[in-house]
């Protein structure tokens, strides 16, 4: 039996919906478990990313930590896959790009209706927010895309089986969706 394909996943500035969609593969997960090994992921115990064949990235690049994790992932993987609209197009997090970073922080921490006296957190442990949210293709080279908000389990299954077959997935009309 051939060695299993090593896969790592991360989520950056996203809602984890794409990972949930991955879990929606249901019994197909069993089939995939025979072919791939998820060596690091938010949904498994190991968070540290070792060198892998395929790196799957959910979410947009919203802060410095996202950027660091993404750059690390790029180094560790052979094929980098952007999953979901945030990773592919910057998506919903990028709706803040029309505003100044300071205004966005104020809105969240100071001007929020539920906040009486608020301040913007300043700590070395809190990663710095980027001025503009970026799609991951604007930070690193991306090899394949699985658009959708979230992509359906069928989309993810299609993309993974295509990748396992050695092809970059191309999206036929009727399958591609941005919502």
């Amino acid at each position: 039996m051939a060695a299993k394909v090593k896969v790592a996943t991360v989520w950056l500035g996203g809602c984890s919906g794409c990972h949930m969609s991955f879990l929606d593969l249901d019994e197909r997960l069993v089939e995939l478990a025979g072919l791939i090994e998820i060596v690091a992921s938010p949904i498994v115990d190991v968070k540290e990313i070792p060198p892998v064949d395929v790196g799957i990235v959910e979410g947009a690049v919203c802060n410095k930590e996202n950027e660091e994790v993404l750059l690390h992932m790029r180094k560790q993987c052979k094929i980098l896959v952007a999953i979901g609209d945030c990773a592919a197009y910057a998506g919903v997090p990028a709706m803040r790009n029309q505003f100044k970073r300071e205004d966005v922080l104020d809105r969240a921490y100071v001007d929020a209706e539920s906040t009486l006296i608020g301040e913007i957190p300043h700590s070395a442990e809190v990663p710095e927010l980027m001025k503009k949210v970026k799609a991951i293709k604007d930070v690193v080279k991306v090899d394949a895309y699985i658009p959708g908000c979230p992509p359906s389990a069928d989309d993810i299954y299609y993309a993974l089986t295509e990748l396992l077959a050695g092809r970059i997935p191309e999206w036929p009309e009727g399958m591609l969706h941005f919502d």
């Binding site: 592919a88 197009y89 998506g91 919903v92 293709k137 191309e170 009309e173 969706h177 941005f178």
Partner: peptide
């Protein structure tokens, strides 16, 4: 921002054209 738009999912001609032309990234 397609996920946020009322027309998404068939009623947007721009989106339909993107699907037709297999635009999976920009």
């Amino acid at each position: 921002f397609c996920p946020f738009c009322e027309m998404s999912g068939g009623d947007c001609e721009l989106q339909n054209k993107a699907y037709e032309n297999k635009m999976d990234h920009i």
